[in-house]
């Protein structure tokens, strides 16, 4: 479904991605972990064409999307809940969801809003509140909900659990699983919460300084002692 082949991305002189190869098959949940500054967010944004890959190719649904403008890529069925949530601050919850639904038919709107509210009942209570005044966790839910509104084939999630209470994190991962299994959405997930994210995933990749350094099934990576030492120390297992 998504095939990233030898992608290099630069910010001015800085080479943030140094030839990344990643495959995501239809129906999978794929998790990407890595230290701060490894280039995870850059990779998700490069898939969406901003910044643009300097070299290498990105295929979505067997079509080359490397040079396409961002809005074209989105209209083909990619959605992203980006780093920092990026809620439209002066739009209400409903309006934010409406923005998410921009690339689908208007007729779907009511049903899709209902299913987002079903996943995140808290958003329903806040539906007429302005995005900028939501709490961090509420914004995170809205960011995911907004991404779902476009009925994406591929959902890119950049650290969805960031800043959420442990209870909510658990629920969130259950929701991600639900989206994947019941709505058939393919998910490419970036996480710091390596334990949960790898347990959830069919497969995983590990990035460091702009390169993929390890790949495998979620279970394999979880069992790998190097991963343990680098990303899982500090009691995550118990969570």
């Amino acid at each position: 479904m998504l095939s990233i082949q030898g992608v290099h991305t630069f910010y001015g002189q800085i080479e943030a991605l140094k030839g990344v190869d990643i495959e995501v098959q239809e129906g999978e949940i794929v998790t990407l972990i890595g230290a701060n500054g490894a280039g995870k967010s850059t990779l998700l944004m490069t898939v969406c064409g901003n910044p643009r890959a300097a070299s290498g190719r990105i295929y979505f649904d067997d079509q080359d999307i490397t040079g396409l403008p961002t809005h074209d890529i989105i209209h083909r069925g990619v959605a992203q809940a980006p780093e920092g949530r990026r809620i439209f601050p002066r739009m209400t919850v409903i309006e934010n969801l409406r923005m998410g639904a921009l690339s689908t038919e208007d007729a779907y709107f009511d049903d899709d809003v209902a299913s987002v509210f079903n996943l995140f009942p808290l958003l329903h209570e806040r539906r007429n509140q302005r995005g900028g005044t939501l709490s961090g966790g509420e914004q995170q839910m809205l960011a995911i909900g907004r991404a779902l509104m476009s009925r994406p084939k591929l959902l890119l999630l950049d650290e969805p659990s960031l800043g959420l209470a442990p209870m909510i994190v658990k629920q969130l991962f259950a929701v991600i699983k639900e989206i994947n299994e019941q709505q058939g959405v393919t998910i490419f997930l970036v996480e710091q919460n390596a334990y949960h994210a790898l347990r959830l995933a069919h497969r995983g990749y590990v990035m460091a300084t702009g390169e993929v350094i390890m790949a495998g099934t979620g279970a394999d990576l979880l069992a790998n002692p190097r991963i343990h030492a680098a990303y899982l120390e500090g009691g995550h297992q118990g969570a």
């Binding site: 809005h71 998410g100 921009l102």
Partner: peptide, 17 residues
């Protein structure tokens, strides 16, 4: 709505299409 979205966060506006 697209105009207001561009006004508030242009990169995010592109990211919703």
């Amino acid at each position: 709505r697209a105009q207001r979205a561009c006004e508030q966060d242009r990169a995010m506006a592109a990211l919703v299409g």
